[in-house]
Design a protein around this nucleic acid. Structure first.
Length: 869
RNA sequence: GGGCGGUUAGCUCAGUGGUAGAGCACUUCGUUCACACCGAAGGGGUCACAGGUUCAAAUCCUGUACCGCCCACCA
């Protein structure tokens, strides 16, 4: 067969054409065949604001890998894509846009803002989906969903109303995490703690009766404007008898009581804590226990809001400065110490969170958690790697209230309507609410929207049509696998489990696969803002999507992180090129399809056996999401075994029309299986190469082909051992040649071999590049360099080419190695405890080794003598 | 403060009791008709550290250090 394949693989021309073909052939849709088991994934919906980063370049190819693998394994596969409206992120993007245009959300109002956001979403909100196509992700776009779709939005409201009616959602006043930049509350898990250098201020609070003062320590003096008490530990001797006294709050005309509470730690500071219930979660609890007032003195931008006060309108940090200065001036400031402060930072804005007392909607997760815990403990949901299970359960067992409301516009507006009396009714519409309210007139809808994670929590069933009982919902729920990253186990996975179990009665997926975080070469997080990121699209353009995919997927296993580096993409690209050229070689050496031959040689059986073992290893690794192990096995089979050995061994047979059929068949068989196994990781190049293969019963597409089904008789460990022994001898002979500066791959006339080659003489001859192998010892007087291994003596005639000193040096080195080995073996065999307790097989093995090493050493002595040593 | 990962060749990582492995990088050689994005041959590791268990430890146990992640209400 002739081929016009160029000698170099060009990803850009090959990759672009296949995606369309697959899509046109309908391969991204589930196979309607009812006999096939279903395999479903609803992908983690990317934000509409997103553009592809390295995390995505791992995440979405993983979803695609799973789909392609399961499809090859005979399943009907649905990988359902979609996008998340991403409340905070999107609103920020549009606000920025408006600012550029000289206006703002506040100026144009809610309705115009939402219109503008939808416009933005329709124009540029699906950048990332196009990029996923470039990565080869074969998702069912006809089922693509968006969390603000009409149907989806209805599902969200339905869930809210249901939980509201069941009392699982309630309104409450709590100290929440307030983001003063985004001006909304955020949940605990959207915040992180950071240690920063700050100060601890010691402030004197005088007693109102003039009988001296006590000292409190605080890191946030500005909040003293909202102090309502000072608390001390009831066991603190310093304050015995003083409890109940009134204190004159500095910089203020208010007096506040000294109270006793379990919260203060006598060891810290002065043991006295100022209590600001509205601006600190701990103080809030103290305030509740003592029924204290809870004045709020910071506004939504964290500015002081205290009309009439000189600090009114100041930013919280500016206020701190002024208050500290004033305290000092008036003699209240006792001292200032350096202090490490644990601040809470919003992950979205990077701003320091202001704990703020406000009225919010909450979900009572504690009532939903037990079903989730039970499902995991019963093994109906499995985590990969398993260690995440405990982390997950730990969080579920200590679950807290979930603050659902966000003070945003972009999102699902909370379906709560208030009537004249102030009573709240949850309903799908104003009209519904009115009918629920009866005589009381509905006067307004709640202004807030729901936390984005509330809507993504319904992803596995709302995408399939819930609350309607659609055919898709019946067919594809529960889904099979969730593949996501560890940062959102609690944020997202937990919520999907709670909602899925509550509304569908079944856990939403069986496997939860947690993949690694992609770091850069130096082990830093990839981040646009830090400039440590690499754009995957650039790699796709220059080296191909398959190279990009292989780079990341071949590192996916149970690891916590993985490192991206450009060098690895070069390796992946080189692998593509090697695949291309190996196939090209095969095609140049076959005329058409070949039938399975009756008689195979050792090397043929060896490769088939290796293929058999490789398939088993790959399948096992894929099933456990250990792509790393699968890729290693495939790489080794392809590059080391098939290319470096089998193709080289077969070249002479392929050149001869009388013998070529067998290696032709073996190569085509191996290549076909290899391409199938590699396809889930590198879909484009494997599809392209498969198209060239002249094989029987070929599928229309590799993508829709069947996973290799290799007969058990391919497995042949005895032949594997025999052939690999031969290769060992080949390597030794090549090394011997190199030691006398005999060029590699140049045919040399003769080598003497004594020992059993087990029928692999021809392999040894061609692979060690000799014209002739003579069995037996060299004739008397023939000057040779020699070595011994595997019970075989190799003698390479050298005439008088060689410097004796060089050969003596080589022999000495060999001898040194052997002596060290002998010493070690002997040491063990001389140890009576070892002889008594070690396994008999091991002892036998060592004894055999000893004999072999001694024999080799003896031969070296003889050989040294030949060179005057 | 609690929990979980990691620490093995220059780099990235395999390796869960029996004489340290792979890929890349490096050195030397090679322009033969699959591939120089290639081939052949080499060099390179006291397996973080300290104890312990064992005939035998990279591997099991205890502790320490460093890196990273998660959770947590110390002003």
């Amino acid at each position: 067969m002739s081929t016009e394949m160029p000698t170099r693989y060009d990803a850009s021309t090959v990759e672009s054409k296949w995606y369309e073909s697959w899509e046109e052939a309908g391969l991204f849709k589930p196979d309607p065949d009812p006999a096939k088991p279903r395999y479903t994934i609803t992908i983690p919906p990317p934000n509409i604001t997103g553009s592809l980063h390295m995390g995505h370049a791992l995440c979405y190819p993983l979803q695609d890998w799973a789909g392609r693998y399961q499809r090859l394994r005979g399943k009907s596969v649905l990988i359902l894509p979609g996008q998340d409206h991403a409340g905070i992120a999107t609103q920020s993007v549009v606000e920025k846009l408006l600012r550029k245009e000289g206006t703002s959300g506040a100026q144009i109002g809610r309705e115009a803002f939402l219109e503008r956001t939808w416009q933005w979403r329709n124009e540029s909100g699906d950048t990332i989906l196009k990029q996923l196509r470039a990565l080869g992700c074969g998702f069912d776009w006809s089922r693509s969903r968006f969390t603000l779709d009409e149907g989806y939005a209805k599902a969200v409201l339905q869930v809210f109303i249901d939980w509201f009616d069941k009392g699982l959602i309630f309104r409450g006043k709590r100290v929440v995490n307030w983001d003063p930049v985004l001006r909304t509350s955020v949940s605990d898990i959207e915040t992180e703690r950071k240690l920063i250098k700050g100060h601890l201020y010691y402030i004197r609070y005088p007693y109102a009766d003039g009988s001296g003062s006590l000292t409190i320590a605080t890191t946030r003096p500005e909040t003293m404007l909202a102090d309502v008490a000072v608390a001390v530990s009831p066991s603190d001797a310093r304050y015995q008898g003083l409890i109940g006294k009134q204190i004159q709050l500095p910089l203020s005309d208010r007096t506040i009581p000294l109270i006793a509470d379990i919260y203060p730690d006598p060891e810290f500071g002065s043991g006295a804590v100022k209590i600001t219930p509205a601006h600190d979660p701990n103080d809030y609890m103290v305030g509740q226990r003592h029924s204290l007032e809870m004045p709020v003195i910071l506004d939504e931008r964290a500015r002081v809001s205290l009309p009439g006060s000189p600090y009114d309108g100041l930013d919280r940090y500016e206020a701190r400065k002024r208050i500290v200065a004033d305290l000092e001036e008036q003699g209240f400031l006792e001292k200032v110490e350096d202090h490490e402060i644990a601040v809470v930072v919003s992950e979205r804005s990077g701003e320091v969170i202001e704990p703020l007392l406000s009225e919010q909607w909450f979900a009572d997760q504690a009532k939903l958690a037990p079903a989730v815990i039970e499902a995991v403990e019963a093994g109906r949901v499995q985590f990969y790697p398993a260690r995440y299970q405990e982390i997950f359960l730990e969080w579920m067992r200590n679950i807290r209230e979930w603050c659902l409301s966000r003070q945003l516009w972009w999102g699902h507006r909370i379906p709560v309507y208030y009537d004249e009396s102030g009573a709240a009714h949850a309903a799908l519409s104003w009209e519904d609410a009115q009918s629920k309210a009866g005589d009381q007139k509905i006067v307004r809808q709640d202004d807030d929207v729901l936390d984005t994670w509330f809507s993504s929590g319904l992803w596995p069933f709302a995408t399939l049509g819930w609350p309607e009982v659609t055919a898709d919902l019946r067919e594809f729920y529960p889904t099979s696998t969730l593949i996501t990253d560890r940062n959102i186990i609690n944020l997202w996975v937990a919520r999907m489990m709670m909602m899925g179990l509550h509304f569908m009665g079944k856990e939403p997926f069986h496997d939860v696969c947690i993949y690694a975080t992609v770091l850069n070469e130096k082990g830093q997080r990839m981040s646009k803002s830090l400039g440590t990121g690499v754009d995957p699209m650039g790699i796709i353009e220059t080296k191909g999507a398959d190279a990009m995919r292989y780079t990341l997927l071949s590192q996916a296993g149970e690891n916590q992180d993985l490192r991206y580096s450009d060098r690895k993409t070069d390796e992946a690209r080189n692998l593509c090129n090697k695949l291309w050229n190996a196939t090209r070689f095969v095609l140049l050496n076959v005329e058409g399809s070949v039938a399975k031959p009756d008689v195979l040689e050792d090397t043929d059986r060896w490769l088939l056996s290796r293929l058999y073992q490789t398939e088993a290893a790959v399948r096992n690794a894929y099933d456990r999401y250990h792509l790393q192990d699968a890729c290693t096995a495939l790489y080794r089979f392809f590059w080391s075994e098939m290319c470096d050995w089998y193709i080289e061994v077969s070249k002479s047979r392929l050149a001869d029309p009388a013998t070529r059929a067998v290696p032709q068949w073996v190569l085509l068989t191996s290549l076909e299986a290899l391409l199938k196994m590699l396809h889930p990781v590198m879909p484009h190049i494997t599809e392209e190469l498969y198209a060239y293969l002249p094989i029987e019963d070929k599928a229309a597409y590799l993508m829709s082909a069947a996973w290799p089904n290799l007969p058990a008789e391919y497995s042949d460990p005895a032949t594997e051992a025999r052939v690999e022994r031969t290769f060992e001898i080949v390597r030794a002979l090549r090394a011997l040649r190199a030691s006398v500066d005999l060029a590699a791959m140049k045919s040399a006339p003769i080598v003497y071999v004594s020992g059993d080659l087990q029928g692999n003489e021809e392999t040894l001859r061609t692979q060690a590049w000799f014209e002739q192998i003579v069995l037996g010892a060299p004739p008397e007087g023939e000057r040779c360099v020699s070595t011994t291994l595997e019970g075989v003596d190799l003698h390479l005639p050298i005439g008088d080419l060689l410097d004796p000193q060089k050969e003596l040096a080589r022999l000495d080195k060999e001898s040194e190695k052997l002596s060290a080995e002998l010493l070690k073996i002997q040491g063990q065999l001389d140890n009576p405890l070892f002889m008594e307790r070690a396994k008999p097989e091991l002892i036998e093995k060592l004894q055999a080794n000893r004999e072999e090493v001694e024999g080799k050493l003896g031969k070296i002595v003889e050989r040294r003598a030949l060179f005057g040593g």
